[in-house]
Design a protein around this nucleic acid. Structure first.
Lengths: 153, 153
DNA sequence: GGTGAAACGTAGGCCGT
DNA sequence: ACGGCCTACGTTTCACC
């Protein structure tokens, strides 16, 4: 990854279009940013090579896939050793319900985004996964009722 | 969107591959899931039409783009009227630093994900945007130090 | 950065199961 | 109703200007 990449207005435009529609054809993209297809493709290839574009993903509609329950969960550990952090993070990696795990500043160490089919499925995760980890000290759940903005969806 | 869609193993496989690489060609995808290209394309088209696949996006490397500071911010409003909620949500829609805005249960109403260039840029957002909104009552910031898991990145 | 042409992939009609 | 085959059409990709 390159921390310093010379970016101009056109690169910004390209990234904006690709972030919005990752499957736009190079022809359409070139037209939108006002470049010839080959010049546009060269820029996109450079952005991919330098890691500015990390990849492309299909955005799945979770509710259509049976995910009806989303919560943010703060987790505090009882010991702050590297070993206990690594053990906790490994457990989160393995848990399919955990979509995000962030190490944050503040009263507790971790913030999770958890997606489950419903409240019952969430309770299983809460009890059988989080509840059984010896490092876990405090758990607080914040149920998502709606997301008026979610650019990462 | 269709809440009940008959999904089999192959559809799951297709979604998994597209979630991983949204730009895989239909030819490669067909081979991976063990279908002919036309049959595969028909399934993908159906998944798009029913809304299971909501779209495609390029994943941008934020650090390469100058985003060096990420925080989760809880926001409490002083009035719980529909009008004040809508005003707040409109302000969040306009703010480019706000990447996510979730309406949550608990002591406060909103959880934001905020991405800024650095702490200075974040302070501007905190003071000039959040601080000037009349509806905002309580603000608490949790700085992200790392994300051991982030499947939505 | 633009042009052109060959290689490649897509998309849709058609048929078999 | 769903998968496979074939083909016209569009797109990508590359050497060259």
């Amino acid at each position: 990854m390159q921390l310093f990449t010379a970016m101009d207005k056109i690169d910004d435009h390209i990234l904006h279009e690709l972030a919005h529609d990752g499957r736009i054809s190079n022809l359409d993209l070139a037209e939108r940013v006002g470049l010839s297809p080959s010049a546009c493709l060269r820029r996109v290839a450079a952005l991919e090579r330098t890691g500015v574009i990390a990849g492309y993903r299909a955005v799945l509609n979770r509710t259509a896939l049976g995910v009806g329950f989303t919560a943010y969960v703060t987790v505090g550990l009882n010991t702050h050793t590297k070993a206990s952090q690594e053990a906790f993070e490994r457990a989160m990696s393995r848990a399919p319900e955990v979509v995000e795990c962030h190490n944050i500043t503040g009263a507790v160490e971790y913030l999770l985004r958890v997606e489950a089919a419903d409240l019952t499925a969430y309770k299983s995760f809460h009890t059988d996964v989080l509840g059984t980890l010896p490092q876990v000290h405090a758990i607080t759940s914040y149920v998502v009722m709606g997301s008026p903005k979610d650019e990462r969806a």
